[in-house]
Design a binder for these strands. Structure first.
Lengths: 152, 152
DNA sequence: GTCGCTGCCGAACTTCGTTCGACGGCTCCT
DNA sequence: AGGAGCCGTCGAACGAAGTTCGGCAGCGAC
C-alpha cells in the first residue's frame, strides 16, 4: 500500500467506472501499470468489489431507519440464526452484530412508515429471541470516501 | 422503471464494472439498448454513482463502531454545524440525522480501540452541543443488494 | 387506416482493455 | 565496488468494448 495504491483506491471509490486509461492519466503512470496495480489490489482483497449506488426513493423505498435490537440468549446459535433470518428480509439493507447496549443494528428501507411498523411488529417482535428494539428514522444521510491514512 | 430497468439495477449493484456488452447479453437485449437504458437511469438519478468497495482492515482501520449522539439545542443551526464538523472528521465514514432516542448516528472506522476512545473524548465530548453518546462496536457486518419491489 | 412517436436494433467508428517483451533501478551478496 | 537477480514500469500491438447513428417495427391517437 504505497502512495500509488492509495490514490487508486481513492479514485475508484469516487468513481468505480473510471476507465483504466483515465485512471492511469490521473496517476501519471502507464495504463498497463495502473491495470496491474488494480489487479493486485483486487487479489489482495483491498478492493472487494464495485457497486452501483442506487437511489432508494427511486426504488419506492424512501423511508430509512436504524433498528437497534436486543436478543437473548446471546449464544452463537441464536446469533447465527437471527443473522440468517435478517438476510432473508428484504426490508433490511444491512445488519451489524454489535457490542454495547444493542446486539444487532439493522439498516432498513421501506416504502412508508406503515411498512416500517409492519416490519417491526410482524417480523421482529414475532421472533422469540428478540427482547426488544429501538428505531431511529433517518432524515438525512451522508457518506464519505475512506482515506487510507488517519492524521495523528 | 420496468422490468428491464430493475434487472439493470440489480446487475450493476452486484458488479458495477460489468461491461455493457455482458450486461446486454444477460438481459437479452442489444448493447446499444442497454447503454441507453443505463444512461437514462443515471440521468433520472436512479443510479447515483459507482463506488469501489474497500476493505477497511487493509487500510489500517479494522475497528468499526456506531456512535449514537444526542445534541442540544436541536436547532437547524446546531444540526447543520454539527453535520459539517462530522464531515471533516476522517474517522467518520457516514453520518445520519435521525429521529428517535438519538439525534445523530455515526459510522466510524479507526485503527484500534485507543483511537476510538480518543475520537470520542477529544472530538465528540469536546463539542458543547453534544449532550452524550453511546457506542456500539461492530463485530460483523452484512450488506445486501436492494431489490426494487418489496413483497406484500 | 394513417400519422407520429418511442424504443430497439445492428453496423461502423473510436476508444479502451490486456498481454508481453524489454528496459531501468534496487538490493543483496561477494 | 561490482555484478546478478528481481521487481516494477513502460510502450506497442491486438482483440474487445464503448458509443453513435440511421432505420425499422410496434403502438397509440386521431
Amino acid at each position: 500500500m504505497d502512495e500509488l495504491d492509495s490514490a487508486i483506491v481513492a479514485h475508484l471509490q469516487a468513481d468505480a467506472r473510471l476507465t483504466n486509461r483515465e485512471l492511469a492519466r490521473r496517476l501519471g503512470v502507464a495504463p498497463s501499470t495502473a491495470l496491474e496495480r488494480v489487479r493486485l489490489l483486487r487479489e489482495r482483497g483491498v478492493i472487494r468489489g464495485y457497486h452501483a449506488d442506487i437511489d432508494l426513493a427511486a426504488l419506492n423505498r424512501p423511508v430509512e431507519a436504524f433498528v437497534a435490537c436486543r436478543v437473548r440468549p446471546l449464544s452463537r446459535a441464536v446469533i447465527d440464526n437471527f443473522k440468517a433470518a435478517l438476510n432473508s428480509l428484504p426490508e433490511v439493507l444491512a445488519s451489524y452484530v454489535c457490542a454495547g447496549d444493542d446486539d444487532f443494528i439493522l439498516h432498513v428501507a421501506v416504502p412508508d412508515l406503515e411498512r416500517l411498523h409492519e416490519f417491526l411488529i410482524d417480523r421482529l417482535s414475532e421472533r422469540r429471541e428478540v427482547l426488544g428494539f429501538r428505531s431511529s428514522i433517518i432524515f438525512e444521510s451522508t457518506r464519505k470516501p475512506v482515506f487510507a491514512e488517519l492524521p495523528s
